[in-house]
Each structure stands twice: as structure tokens, then as C-alpha cells.
Amino acid sequence: MSRKVIDHAAQATPPAVAHRIRGLSDRAIAWIFVAPTIVLLLAINVFPLIWTVWLSFTNYRVNRPNKEVEFIGLRNYERILTDSDTWLTMQATAHFLVWTIVLQVLIGFSLAYSINKKFKGNDLWTTIIVLPMMLSPAVVGNFWTFLYQPQIGLFNYVIAFITGVDPSSFSMIGEVSLAPWAIVIVDTWMWTPFVMLICLAGLRSIPDSIYEAAECDRASKWRQFWTITIPMVLPFLMLAVLFRGIENFKMFDLVVQLTGGGPGSVTELTSINLKREAFEKWRTGFASAYAVILFVTVFGLASIYVKALNRVKAR
């Protein structure tokens, strides 16, 4: 029988090619398979990264190609770290990060917990909740500016309907005190489903037998929740927080379309600030140093976090 399969395969492949392929060792095949990926990533990721590091030590400006590039050492870094604007940007980013994560974890977990009660039709409703995160943040963010219009916007209208305030009395994206919350709300609307899905996977991974055993031991539901559900879901939840943290630290498209960093610079997150330095003020060297600082920050925080995560998992 196997003979037949080989004959069939041999017929399907021209002899010369078959011979050449047959001659390759596993090691060679491994390299042929991996090399294109590595080469492409080196060219599009690593090489630019090295270039960025090099540029960060210079005063290069893209819009002045004829000016001689000077090597200025760590001066760009010094300027960024002593600049008070950088710290304002970091504060705006921290506010955005903390609140989006808190809200998404609370809402996402509650939803996952409810969906896991397996009521009729939960599958369909889960899909509807997931929809926003599949869409283009720039296009959706742009449309949210319409929903946030004072008076005519749907968001203002709904809030006015519920609370009784005048819908033209507040502007979510125009007011310094409200704009940081405007971006938190849209991000939460968009990305809560992500946290929800990961929590759901966590909840579904808990075997029924554990609850059955707890039931035999007459543990109350409340106690089961805190001693079984939460500890078992925690590694998943932490993973969700890691992904959301990295994504929101890089946040650009949604917020740039929503507020463009304004009013003033209260919603100017690090990526928006970086874009301004690099592609509006054209301070290429300075912006490169900024990029390096951001990358080191994300990478450092993520590494520490992953260590903590592994400790929780090992428990």
C-alpha cells in the first residue's frame, strides 16, 4: 500500500527536483525554512533599531540633509530626561495606562465570569462584544470625535439623558479635565473584549472536579470564588494585563485621531509626542534617543513583569 503512495508521489514530482530535495539534510531544510524570516526581521526590525541607536547620538535632522552630522554623545538623552515636557507626557501615558487597565480588567473579568454561566445564546453575545477590537482604531477613533460632539453627539446626548445635564455644556475632547477620560472610555470600549476573552479561556481551563471537591467539603460559593476561581484565573489575567500594557504604552492611532494629543498636551501620549518630534519638528537625532528610551522602558518593564508572571504560574 505504501509503495503505491510513493509511486503516486514520485509521479507528481518531476524526478530532477525530487532528487535534489531528497538530497537535502534536515539541517539544511531547517535553515532554508528559517532564514527568510530571520533575514526579513533583521532588515526591517533589527537594522532600523541599530540605526536608531546610532542616530540618537547625533544631531541629524532629516529636513536638513546637507548639514554635517555631528556626534554629540549623550546630549540628546540628557535633554529628554531633564525636559519637563517629557515628564508631562509620561504622566499622561501613566494615567491612560492605569485607568484603561483597571477598567478593562474589572469589566472584562465580570463579563467573562457571566458568560461562563453558559446562559442560552452566550456565544452570539460574546461575538458582538468582541466586534470593536477587530476594527481599525484610526477609523473608529475618528468617528468617536463625532459621537463626542457637544449637543449633537450621541455620547453627550445619552449622558445628558441619564444625568439631566445640558448636552451642550460639556465637551469630552475639548476640555482639559475631560479629554484624558475621553480616550480612556474609547480604549475601554474597544479593548475590554480582549481581557474578557483571555479571562474566559482561564475560567474554562478550571476543571469542574475542583469545584465538586470544594462542594463536598462544604466550602461556601464565596470562598470557592476567592480560593479557586481567582487564583486559577490570575496567570491569565496577568497575561492580559501584560498585552494591554504593551499595546497601550505604544498607543498612537486611536488617540491621535480622537484628540491629536490635545487640548494643549493633556492627552499627548509618548508615541504622539515622539511623532511630533520626529515628523513635525524633524529633530531626528533627538527623536531617536526618545525612541530608544521608550523601547528600553517597555522592554525592561515587560521583562520584570514576565518574571513575576512566571512566579505566579509556578505557584
Binding site: 536608531t52 542616530l55 505604544k250 498612537f252 515622539l274 520626529a278 531626528t284 531617536s288 530608544v292 523601547f295
Partner: peptide
């Protein structure tokens, strides 16, 4: 390494890619 390429903010890589 392959996973870590995703941690980079796109704007940060955009500068050298723009030049390249």
C-alpha cells in the same frame, strides 16, 4: 526575539524605516 519585535512602538521604528 521574533516576539519582541512586536514590543517596539511603530513610531520608534518608523524613523529609520522612513530613511531606509
Amino acid at each position: 526575539f521574533i516576539l519582541s519585535t512586536r514590543m517596539m512602538p511603530p513610531i520608534a521604528v518608523a524613523i529609520p524605516i522612513f530613511l531606509m
